[in-house]
Design a protein around this nucleic acid. Sequence first.
DNA 1: TGTACATCAGTGAACGCGCGTTCACTGATGTAC
DNA 2: TGTACATCAGTGAACGCGCGTTCACTGATGTAC
Lengths: 214, 214
Amino acid sequence: MGAAGTSSRERYRAQVCDEIKQHAWAQIATAGVSGLSLNAIAKHVGMSGPALYRYFASRDELITALIRDAYRSLADALRATFDSGADVAGLACTVREWALRDPQRYFLIYGTPVPGYHAPEDTTEISSEIMTVLIEAFSALSPAKQSTPFDAHLENHRRWADGHAVPATTLHRAISFWTRLHGVLSLELAGHFTGMEFDPALLFADEVNTLLTP
Amino acid sequence: MGAAGTSSRERYRAQVCDEIKQHAWAQIATAGVSGLSLNAIAKHVGMSGPALYRYFASRDELITALIRDAYRSLADALRATFDSGADVAGLACTVREWALRDPQRYFLIYGTPVPGYHAPEDTTEISSEIMTVLIEAFSALSPAKQSTPFDAHLENHRRWADGHAVPATTLHRAISFWTRLHGVLSLELAGHFTGMEFDPALLFADEVNTLLTP
DNA sequence: TGTACATCAGTGAACGCGCGTTCACTGATGTAC
DNA sequence: TGTACATCAGTGAACGCGCGTTCACTGATGTAC
């Protein structure tokens, strides 16, 4: 069989791998990360528990793969939205839709950190990909009128954004974009607005607007 | 012994109860909620596993008590700060210090929700106590200059704030105060700013400032 | 003050459970000549 | 095309573990007369 390219064994392997992940997500959506059980997944996939070890060396490695996939998914969604000509508001919309589609996936990345667990390096790389899209989107806007103390501070601590030839105020807006959207989304998804009968989507939209015209 | 007032048995009971909770918090700080084990706590407290059932009917009831205590602690801290004459910025400072003192306690309340678990009613009451302090603090400020679409929407959906004779813009600011602080704090505590070398405290302060002079 | 009784904190053994993971093994699929 | 061998997916039994929770019981503490 063809030495170069994907052999049928490789294709099969990738397919089963995906199937495992898919059921893992379903389980996370039902019971959270702590309720994720390899044996239970195996049963749903239709094979015995130990068989999973052909695909993931351990439970932790499965979770790591899920985290990586989640980051990848969000980064790709944002990049695609931006490349199709959307502005900052469009990106915000994408983030919101992505989060609402699968809240537990959102929380797996941005929710409570598991003490002791450290994400692998490549996830921080994907994370900075996300930041890059935001910075590019904000650099298309007219620059902020006035500077804040944090802008001044950021001017001296922007090595992490060396690749971006933008003013500190732009970095600031990208960061605030991120923290504010996260603030509304995570409280909404966690149900902290229940009892207040306003529409979280409108609050979200309003937060985005304040970032567009500061 | 004195029929009215706390008997020595009651005092002892309350003391052991506190000791259990204290070790529970230590365990949560180390391994998160999912790592909380009744047997392990019992061992640390110095008694056998089943003895805990004299104090908490189940693991879930222990966690519920911890959640309630956490809410209570934050609400009391905010109330005390406000009553001692502090303004909105002072309240923000209190929130930040409270969160940094024990990140896992913060996340127990505002972090990833456990699917299926529903907090008891009294925690939502305490939650609205917190909201009340924020609304009172913002009502002391000069009213916002311009109104947003969300303000208009809030005007028609403010039954939850019926007890407060304040304009919708004030409610809006209290809500935004909450979501923005949470956005910065939770991302900071979860370590999502590692790699960017800026000081999260300054970003936090800046977010607070934008709320004071909109 | 002393005795009889009720209350209740804590123990130790035991329950069933599901977990992650290992191991030796079977059987099918692909590879090399 | 056919045969011999290597690769690898998946099985079933077994491991030790710690979990939450129950139960019958002991012994100390408080209460009532």
